[in-house]
Nucleic acid binder design. Structure first.
Length: 490
RNA sequence: CGGGGUAUAGCGCAGUCCGGUUAGCGCACCUGGUUUGGGACCAGGGGGUCGUAGGUUCGAAUCCUACUACCCCGACCA
């Protein structure tokens, strides 16, 4: 078989870049750092959206939409927030073009905005400015709102899906009467993300809190889900922030409690982005192409006919049409690929590249025996299944593949997870067998920074639900109450 | 944003050093035929203001200047 992709072993990063392009998920656009998400990739994103949206609705949230542009002054109101985003903001300064004397067009200097507008890098400020008008009483709370939107962060170095200047995401912004309720919301939503990653993306994730260094700008606590990619690096796949009363104070959002006392509102925000697409690709795919979990695959079953004559094709078509109809009635997406300008071998390779979970082939031999050849993408195994059992077989196989993909990712993570007690061993393992490292840490930013400078590894999170275990910091030897998760990260 | 590299047909490249008819090759594409159980073969054909803008020259893909985009390595970040 002709090799079409750089192998993961050869160059993991190049493998990823090529795969995104060749599987037709996205491509670079004419605009610096901005991608075009192509129909095949966008279909996957739509599926993610629809599943997540459903999960948000079931947890009591509703959707709304806030402006793309945010007045510059809004940003200044929360000090940490502006520090965090100032360096990567796109700014609108003018509202009109004019014909240039030199030919072409130029920005009309007469049309300067009174107040410059920031293209949103995230919407806390515009939303909290709006919430001020919506919230007067404890009866207005909680306010549980989500927005599907695009945001812009002027990144210096971009990579398709993993880091683009413009990306699509959802951002939930909730307002609560009590600290406790806001914390519960923050934790509830990180669990929603964790469920989504586990049950749909087929990616095992760890939930934890961020250290002060890594915390969201303006948050008191940031929870994240951390996933392991096949090269052992960590990818932050979703975050949920407990914002305390920071934004309520910055935007003067108060409510009267049931004792007629004025209080500031408690806030959360949480989001996942098109970065999940990158996670999906890097977690599962192989050197032949994408491997997609059936629950997110745009196409779940591809059927390839093999024939010599028109008569054979039309006989096959007749039999397959019934199968297609039955599968569709069970909400299985299926395509009968009767393109006559491509040979079967080409189609096999193409569906592998695009990660279609199940491929059926039917030729004269199968037609005669009333069977299909069934190939599963995740393991590349093939078997022959009778027509009578094919529907049931496919239904079961889709579930098997979804499970198997998850289990493989979990195995990979277990294999590359280390418990380390000395700094020399820590450094050694990062060189020889990178992955997740659980180690003791003294809790200071100094130590965290030192480790990052010397090894490139960062604290991905302080895992929740992990067993408290007393130990000594691998660098300073000072006491520690639990291991934290270190890794090199995307 | 710092260091390095690249830009020639949809994609991947040669040609650039040393300026000189009509800018080539592979894949892809179109037509016809033979094929079809793992990326078919033969024949014919279409497609280029050589990244953009200036400059040098009788003449520029080739030399000079500026700009832009992309890739790799850092710093920053989801």
């Amino acid at each position: 078989m002709a090799k079409i992709l750089t192998s993961r072993k050869e160059n993991y990063s190049q493998w990823y870049n090529e795969l995104i392009i060749k599987a037709d998920l996205a491509e670079n656009s004419a605009v610096r750092g901005c991608m075009v998400i192509k129909p095949y990739g966008y279909t996957i994103w739509e599926k993610m959206q629809s599943i997540l949206d459903d999960m948000f609705k079931k947890t009591g949230h509703v959707n709304a939409y806030f402006p793309l542009f945010i007045p510059k002054s809004f940003f200044a109101k929360e000090a940490d927030h502006v520090d965090g985003f100032a360096k990567e903001c796109a700014v609108v300064t003018h509202y009109r073009l004019r014909n240039s004397e030199k030919g072409g067009i130029e920005v009309d200097p007469e049309a300067k905005l009174e107040e410059e507008l920031i293209v949103r890098p995230t919407s806390e400020t515009i939303i909290w400015n709006t919430y001020r008008n919506w919230i007067q009483s404890y009866r207005d709370l909680p306010l549980l709102i989500n927005q599907w939107a695009n945001v812009v962060r002027w990144e210096m170095r971009t990579r398709l899906f993993l880091r683009t200047a413009e990306f699509l995401w959802q951002e939930g912004h909730t307002a609560h009467a009590t600290k406790q309720e806001a914390i519960e919301e923050t934790e509830k939503m990180i669990k929603v993300y964790s469920d989504f990653a586990t049950n749909y993306l087929g990616i095992p994730v760890l939930i934890g809190t961020k250290t002060e260094n890594e915390r969201f700008a303006g948050a008191l606590e940031t929870y994240s889900i951390e996933a392991m990619m096949q090269d052992g690096k960590a990818l932050q796949a979703g975050t949920s922030h407990f914002l305390g009363q920071n934004f309520a104070k910055a935007f003067d959002v108060k409510f009267l409690n049931n004792e007629n006392k004025e209080e500031y509102v408690w806030a959360t925000s949480w989001g996942v982005s098109t970065r999940l697409m990158g996670a999906l690709v890097m977690a599962h795919s192989d050197d032949n192409g994408l491997i997609l979990p059936p629950k997110l695959a745009p196409l779940q079953v591809a059927i390839v006919p093999i024939y010599k004559t028109e008569e054979q094709l039309s006989a096959i078509k007749q039999r397959v049409n019934k199968l297609v109809e039955t599968l569709r009635s069970k909400n299985i997406t299926v395509k009968f690929d009767d393109r006559d300008y491509q040979r079967p071998g080409f189609k096999f390779a193409e569906y592998e590249l695009k990660g279609v979970p199940i491929r059926l082939a039917i030729g004269p031999r199968d037609f005669e025996n009333e069977t299909y050849e069934v190939a599963r993408r995740d393991t590349l195994e093939k078997e022959t299944v009778s027509s009578a059992q094919i529907v049931e077989h496919i239904e079961k196989l889709l579930i098997d593949i979804q499970d198997n993909i998850y289990n493989k990712a979990l195995e990979l993570r277990n294999k590359n997870t280390h418990y380390i007690d000395t700094y020399s061993e820590f450094k050694n393992i990062l060189e020889t067998n990178p992955g997740f490292i659980y180690a003791h840490w003294d809790g200071t930013s100094e130590t965290e920074n030192k480790i990052q400078e010397e090894t490139k590894a960062t604290i991905r999170c302080i895992p929740i639900n992990s067993n408290p275990e007393h130990g000594k910091c691998i660098v300073t030897g000072k006491p520690s109450k639990q291991r934290v998760l270190f890794a090199k990260a995307y």
